[in-house]
Each structure stands twice: as C-alpha cells, then as structure tokens.
Design a protein around this nucleic acid. Structure first.
Lengths: 342, 342
DNA sequence: TTGTATGCGTTATCAC
DNA sequence: GTGATAACGCATACAA
C-alpha cells in the first residue's frame, strides 16, 4: 500500500505543504478558513495518514510510551502471568490509545538498562512497574522525560508515583481478621525489602496487632517469594505445625490461594479451621474456592491513573508537576474465606 | 540527555558518516579494518545510540511489531485479564526483544481499523490474536507486511497461522472423560461460530462421542459467552436440573472454574458428583480447587513460535513462506477434577 | 495568510 | 575504500 505524503495532499489541495501541516496540527490561526476546508477534504479523499517516524524526527516527540514490567528470574519472560500486571496494562493501554499514544511493552535486560530503548525510540515518557536496582533509576534520571512509577516508594523529584497506602492496606486486612475474633494471625509474604510495598504491608500488620493489644510473634511471619508455590508451602506448615494460628494474611492473592491449598492438603479447611485474607483483588480472587476475602485495589483504575499522570506531565513539559505521590483508594472485600470466631 | 548523532561519531573517528553507517550495520566489505576499528571505538566512547525514527524514515523499516489483542465489549479495555492472552504476550515479547524488535501492544477500535496504526508506525509486521470482522482482515491484506494470526482458521496466503488442532483437543478432552467411564457429558462453551476455535472443539466433542458409540444430545450443550460467569450459570443448571450428567467439558479453563463453582453451589461436588475438564491450561488451572484437569496447549511456546514465524517472514521478505499453518502440540494434563466412574 | 527552504538522523547513491 | 550528498516525510522559521 503506497504511502500518501503531505506533499501529495498539498498538491491536491493546491496549497503548500506548510499549510497542510498547519491545518493538520490545528494551527488554525495561521491559515484561512478556505484553506482549512480544502486541505481537510484533500486529506480525507487521499486517506492521508501521517508518518510518525518523520514526525518524531522533526518534533522530537514520538507519541510512544515505554511500559516496563518485571521479568521472571529464570527465563527472560515478562511477569505478565501475574494478573496484577496484566490488569495494570489494561488500564494504561486504554488511556494511552484514547489520547493517540502507543505503548511499547517490554521487560528490561539485566545488564543493558533501559536507556538504549529510551533513546532509540525517542520515548515521550515511561511507566515503570516493580522495583529494580539503583542503577536502573539512575539511568532513568538521565533521560529527560516524564516517568511514572508504580509499586515503588522511591520519592524523587524525577519521578511521579501512583501508589496505594500499603501500610493501611495491611492494617485493614489484619484488622478485619481481628474484628472477626482472630488473635493468632500469621503473615505470609514475599521478601520484605526496605522501602518495598511488602514492608509497608508488614508494618500495617504489626500496627493492627499492636492497636488490638496483641503480641507480635516473629515465628508467625512466613517470608519468601511472592508465588502460589510458596503460599502452598506456608499453608502446609501453618496447618501442620501451628495449631494456634487461626488466620493468615497473605500479601498477595496468589499467595493466599496457595495458602488455602496447603491448608487443605493438611486436612484442614478454609475458613472452618483457618481464615485467609489476600491482597490486590485480582480477577481470579472471586473465582477461587471459596471466593477469597481480600483487600481490593482497583488495579485497572490505577493503571489508568498512571497513564493520565504521565500524559499530563508530558503536556505540561517544563512546568513541575506536584511531586506528591497519587494515592489510590483501598477497599476491603469480604467474601468467604474469613470466619467469625465463636 | 543529549543525543549523540552519527555525525559526531564520524568526526571523532575522523571518517565520513557513511563509513560509520557501514560499520555499524555490518557492511564490513565496504570498509577497511582500520576504519572499523576507529569507528567502533568512537561509537563506544561516545556511547552512541542510533535513532530508530531516523532509521525508519530512511529504511522504511521500524523494528516495530504490532501486537493486537481483543478488547472487552463494554469498556474499551484489552482482554488481558484473560491469562491466555497474557501468556501469549509473554512468549511473543521475549522472542521479539531478543531479536532487537519492540512490540506495540494495543487493542483495535471498532470503527477505525488497524490500518492507521500500521501506517503511522511503519510496522514491520503484526501478530493478531482473536477473531475479528471481515473488513479488518481486508485492511490487513492491503498493507504489505507479514502477519501472523493466532486463534484463527482463516487460511489465506496473506497470513501465517500459528494454531493448535482444536478439534483434536476437544476430542482428547471428551475421550479422557469417556475413558473414565462417563457417558453423559455436557459441553459448556462460548458461542459456536463458523470456523472459530470453539466450533472445532465442539466437533471434537461430537467425534469422541460418536466413536464411543454414545448419543449426541443437543440438550447437553450449554453455549453462551467465554466467561467465568457463564460457566457458573451452566454449572448450576447442570447440577440442579440434569442429574444424568456426570461430566462436563468446558472449552476454556475459566469457564471450567465457573462450572465448578456453580456445581458446588447446588450442593454437589467436583469430582465426586460431577467431573470437569477444561481447555488451555492457563497458569491458574493448577491453582484451582481442586486442581483442574485440562487440555494443555503450551501457550507461551505458542507465543514464541508466532514471533519466530513473523521474524523469519520479515527476514525472508519477498520469498514466500510455506502457507501451511504451524500446529502446536497438545497434551492432556490429568489433575483432580475427573473421577473414574465405578 | 501563504509558500519556500531547511533541519531532524540515517541510509543509499554516487562519484572519487 | 571513501566521502559528499540526496533522499525519507514532516514541521517550522522566515521571507514574501
């Protein structure tokens, strides 16, 4: 299919290429109504489609947004199997497309850094999910483009952050358990890194305990990787060797599902013997057996919000945007995995 | 961060920009070893990163691949919540990135068509998942680029198809049920469209029945949308009003999970009262309760294969590639939702 | 208001 | 082998 250029449009309309460019870019103040009319018709009839590569070259603006998501450790694959990221992407893409932007979705090579892609593609901005090593962020600061971070507690004037109050979320979850009469509550979680989201949730766990006058028992935190498999291990352990535990807060829904499986494998039931609450409210949470009680963060909205933030940062190029993080709301969704004691 | 251009590299190396271009593009036959050395060092020291927009303009090749995935009907969001697509994307992205390509992931507006994006971005190729209306494919044929279809039975010389033998898959599933002594087997499925994947699976269902000398009963096919929710409805219906049915084949894992839920809601159990088998083996299949027996199509491999096909088609520009579809293998994964009768 | 001419960074076509 | 230089398609400063 042959490419229609701006020149052909200009010839058909009987005006200059400059005029065409003005009209098509909405610089209506620079052209007469008559020209606008002619150009628009010509463009229409020829079915003119601008070439973004050329535009990018002339403008230094590509209408391209980089979206980075973590990869699995072993194989070099995106962590997209985690519905949390999928749903985030849904939200992001929908907003971007409606604004005429496109999304380049990719993981990031361990050695290389993301700088290459950024420079090669003249990205207008980027949304980074997950947590990476320091050097990655240093790279990011060098390129002069708006960047939105998701799931990060790195507060730096170079970045906008769209987050949730993870500490509160942890608190809400554990408090719900406490309100239902539980006093021996385990925490099943991924590695607790300084300033990571799980650390905050962990802090919320401790605060809820403390406020209720309950004793924090380090033996009741099961910490490893954020996977269904580890949840399963932890669930078995809890059911088999910790008869005192009546409830567990898992810091992700997938882990919660693993816990339920593990508990069951040891001949106990959820929620009869052990109550479980998760975090995120991924779409599968409601499909689990029994349907999982969890802390809902409206993931898709969060993705949309991140995109919105980025777009407005791009538009306000130059003007500093407020550097306070955007905090999305949380809600406790009570389904069937928490039992009221007594 | 300032952009280093090819000109600066050429100056530093003391050669022409043409020489730099030759070296960097591996046209080593056109330059002396000495120049190669100098250019490489200069590029290294300056940390030169080529601009793909410029390259795209000069070459008419963008190193950009369009990946299209269906959207939800209601809101304009990607169907990425469906792990089937997520996993496909994982496979695709990993292969593309390793070959120096990037992926533009997007849905497609109902009215617009995909032509715009294609032309705007000078896409080198595209991978299309799902099924669309005729006009969409007509558009696709107009642009002269390699295209790979996933989940489609459109055999046209313009497209490569990376598929599975859906008929066989359906057959395998139902046959497994029959081997376990079931004779009244329901089918729970999305809308059966002519030449769609579910139609093939439906055909496999019927063939298995027939070969086993069983009677095909239209009342035992529950056909609506490919959702957890519909699976749930169907499951309830089956458990409540069809005591003769002892097993169901759901044409997607998500539907199967819904069926299980529905069955349970009516006071029956899986697999004690009703056996269930799914299709796809999404990552959540093993996490369901009980773990779901299903027909596994290695989704990630399929994504990788699709990317490989596309890349080799791009490289062989001009030469026709074999137009027979690539068929990926299937495997029955027996977990805990099918009970042996008697 | 309109058109001309130039630059954006690369590659490719030539002469040398 | 090597190096000017003209495309590629678009936007824009400047001249008209």
């Amino acid at each position: 299919m042959k490419r229609i250029t701006i020149r052909e449009v200009s010839e058909k309309a009987g005006v200059s290429t400059a005029a065409v460019s003005y009209v098509l870019n909405g610089r209506h103040s620079k052209v007469s109504a008559d020209t606008i009319e002619k150009v628009q018709r010509a463009a229409q009839e020829l079915n003119y489609i601008p070439d973004f590569s050329a535009r990018s070259l002339a403008n230094n603006s590509s209408k391209l947004i980089g979206v980075v998501i973590p990869q699995t450790e072993d194989r070099k694959q995106l962590l997209l199997q985690n519905p949390f990221y999928s749903e985030l992407i849904c939200g992001i893409e929908s907003q971007l497309r409606q604004s005429g932007y496109h999304m380049i979705l990719s993981g990031v090579e361990k050695g290389e850094g993301y700088l290459d892609t950024t420079m090669q593609r003249n990205l207008d901005g980027a949304i980074i999910m997950g947590v990476y090593q320091e050097s990655f962020y240093d790279d990011l600061k060098k390129v002069n483009m708006p960047i939105v971070l998701i799931d990060s507690y790195i507060y730096d004037r170079h970045f906008h952050v769209v987050g949730i109050d993870d500490e509160l979320g942890g608190y809400m979850a554990v408090n719900h358990l406490i309100e239902n009469g539980h006093t021996n509550i385990a925490l099943v979680t991924g590695t607790i890194r300084k300033d990571g989201v799980v650390e905050k949730r962990f802090l919320g766990y401790k605060r809820a305990l403390k406020e209720a006058g309950l004793f924090y028992n380090p033996d009741h935190v099961f910490e490893h990787s954020v996977t269904y498999e580890y949840g399963y291990e932890a669930g078995k352990l809890i059911a088999a060797e910790h008869p005192e535990i009546t409830a567990v807060f898992a810091t992700s829904d997938q882990m919660a599902m693993g816990v339920m499986r593990g508990v069951r494998e040891e001949g106990k039931d959820v929620p009869e013997h052990i109550s479980v609450i998760g975090f995120d409210d991924i779409s599968f949470a409601r499909m689990s057996t029994p349907p999982l009680t969890t802390v809902d963060q409206d993931i898709i909205s969060r993705g949309m919000k991140a995109a919105d933030c980025l777009l407005s940062a791009i538009q306000n190029k130059g003007k500093e945007l407020p550097s306070e993080p955007t905090i999305m709301p949380l809600a406790l969704v009570a389904r069937d995995t928490v039992r009221k004691l007594q």
